[in-house]
């Protein structure tokens, strides 16, 4: 026991007496203060910018929808953009929230919070995948309609435009689906890690 105490005292000594060695490796006080101020400003700018984009997008869609009775194709396109606008809005909220919240709980409680967050993120991801699949099907349906029109009569400029956007949306949502799948695997790994941590 006294041998362990002795070696612990040695560790204590080397931990506290070698700060000069560490000092060379750490950013200076001034650099740290500057970088933190810079980061604070950057967070605020990002949140404001996302907020403006979201509000502009949603306002535009609502004003367009109320300006006249839209066709089915227009309604579908508006819906897709509305989803994008709302997603940007939600992202803004998440960004603003994450920049405000810094946990002051005990480590044990913080692990539980992280665990709950991961579980909720997994559920949100599942919901997003379903929404994504629905929007993909709508865009696919729109594309099918354009192909059907193309087979029966000569295509006009607006058909190419709507077809191009629908194709773009299809590709975009395929990409998003692949990204969601990767996210799901990573979230499951995170959940496994936190569960092990909780039981330590």
């Amino acid at each position: 026991m006294s041998q362990q105490q002795g070696s612990w005292n040695n560790l204590l000594q080397s931990w506290n007496e070698n700060d000069a060695e560490i000092d060379k490796k750490v950013l200076s006080e001034k650099t740290l203060i500057d970088q933190i101020n810079k980061q604070n400003r950057k967070n605020k700018r990002e949140a404001i910018l996302c907020g403006i984009v979201s509000i502009a997008l949603i306002s535009y869609i609502i004003s367009e929808m109320y300006s006249g009775l839209p066709s089915i194709a227009d309604t579908i396109l508006y819906s897709v953009f509305l989803v994008l606008g709302l997603s940007t809005g939600l992202y803004t909220l998440a960004l603003a929230r994450s920049s405000i919240v810094a946990s002051t709980d005990s480590s044990k409680s913080h692990i539980n919070v992280l665990l709950e967050q991961s579980k909720n993120n997994l559920k949100a991801l599942l919901f997003s995948r379903i929404v994504c699949a629905i929007v993909f099907l709508i865009a696919l349906f729109l594309l099918g309609m354009i192909v059907y029109v193309a087979l029966n009569k000569t295509l006009e400029f607006q058909h190419y435009l709507v077809g191009g956007i629908a194709l773009g949306c299809c590709l975009l949502f395929v990409g998003i689906s692949i990204w969601f799948k990767k996210e799901k695997i990573q979230l499951e790994q995170q959940l496994e890690f936190l569960t092990k941590l909780e039981h330590t």
Partner: peptide, 14 residues
């Protein structure tokens, strides 16, 4: 420590 735990949790995703 909470920030360090959040960091190590993010690393566990990779």
């Amino acid at each position: 420590y909470n920030q360090a735990l959040t960091h190590v949790t993010k690393q566990s995703r990779k």
